[in-house]
């Protein structure tokens, strides 16, 4: 689990940070609608209820934080993007937000009863460090849950993108490489990772997430306006290659039209554990 990264963590972090600053304005209305479908499962798993000290890191535009507050939890949201936080604060003026780094949490040991990381780990240079930090700031008995996207094969959304990326024939995009994401959404690997970090009662369950739209261009909107790594892949292509990929995404999405509506599945894996 502790092999040396084959990528430059600093370049990856800068790429991610710049990307999220750019996606903040549209995140809530586009990709945020998908991630929010896992809110209740996460909050149930970490037992976010009245007076529970709850940390969401990264909190993005604050949807999960807001849902936790509705359950009565004492909520703190943390994100590394000032633009995301400004949006979060506008939507949830009564909640507490901190700008910070989930791999170096600015909190004392045992400060929270529940910690979540909703689709955040794949964006960190060192996901293991973020899990270790979550463990540190949890009080004994506290619960942690993270979600990550299931891979192509399980996910029609990511299958379409992966197939489309092959459309130009030679997809060799000079993206800053990041951590491997396959491990995070594998049920056994995720439980092993959490157990190695010290968690007990580990669990890994698949959560359904669906994207429904009438126009396949909505899928391109999501990619270009509200997420980071896939957009980076597309923008790194020469114009003709990019056009081919876009066309293949549109056709791929269209092939999932049923009763007049395009329905793509993008299930999430939720992995969780309890601090002894």
């Amino acid at each position: 689990m502790s092999e040396k990264p084959s990528y430059d963590p600093k370049a990856f972090k800068e790429f991610e940070h710049a990307g999220w600053e750019r996606s903040a304005a549209n995140y809530h209305d586009l990709f945020g609608r998908l991630t929010a479908q896992t809110n209740e499962a996460i909050l149930g798993r970490v037992d976010a209820r009245t007076d529970v000290r709850f940390l969401d890191a990264p909190c993005g535009t604050g949807e999960l934080a807001g849902a936790a507050a509705k359950r009565g939890a004492r909520v703190t949201g943390l994100d590394f993007s000032a633009t995301m936080l400004a949006d979060a604060r506008g939507r949830h003026p009564d909640l507490e937000f901190r700008q910070g780094d989930a791999e170096n949490l600015p909190f004392e040991n045992a400060a929270f009863d529940a910690v979540s990381c909703q689709f955040g780990l794949r964006h960190f240079p060192d996901p293991g460090k973020a899990i270790a930090e979550a463990f540190r700031v949890l009080a004994p008995g506290g619960r942690y849950a993270y979600t990550d996207w299931c891979p192509p094969g399980i996910s029609t959304f990511f299958q379409i993108i992966m197939d489309a990326a092959k459309a130009p024939g030679d997809a060799s995009a000079p993206l800053p490489e990041g951590p491997s994401v396959s491990r995070l959404s594998d049920p056994d690997e995720s439980r092993r990772t959490l157990a190695a970090a010290g968690f007990e009662e580990t669990e890994a369950v698949e959560l359904p997430v669906e994207l429904r739209c009438g126009d396949p261009r909505y899928v391109l909107d999501i990619i270009y306006k509200s997420i980071v790594r896939t957009r980076g892949l597309l923008e790194a292509q020469p114009p003709e290659a990019r056009e081919k990929i876009e066309q293949a995404i549109l056709e791929g999405a269209e092939s999932h039209r049923k009763d007049g509506e395009i329905v793509l599945t993008l299930p999430a894996l939720m992995a969780s554990g309890r601090k002894p």
């Binding site: 943390l78 000032a82 901190r98 780094d101 600015p106």
Partner: peptide
């Protein structure tokens, strides 16, 4: 020393 801006502490190293 970390700044507090618009009530949000900027806890970035």
């Amino acid at each position: 020393v970390y700044r507090i801006q618009d009530d949000i502490p900027i806890m970035m190293v």
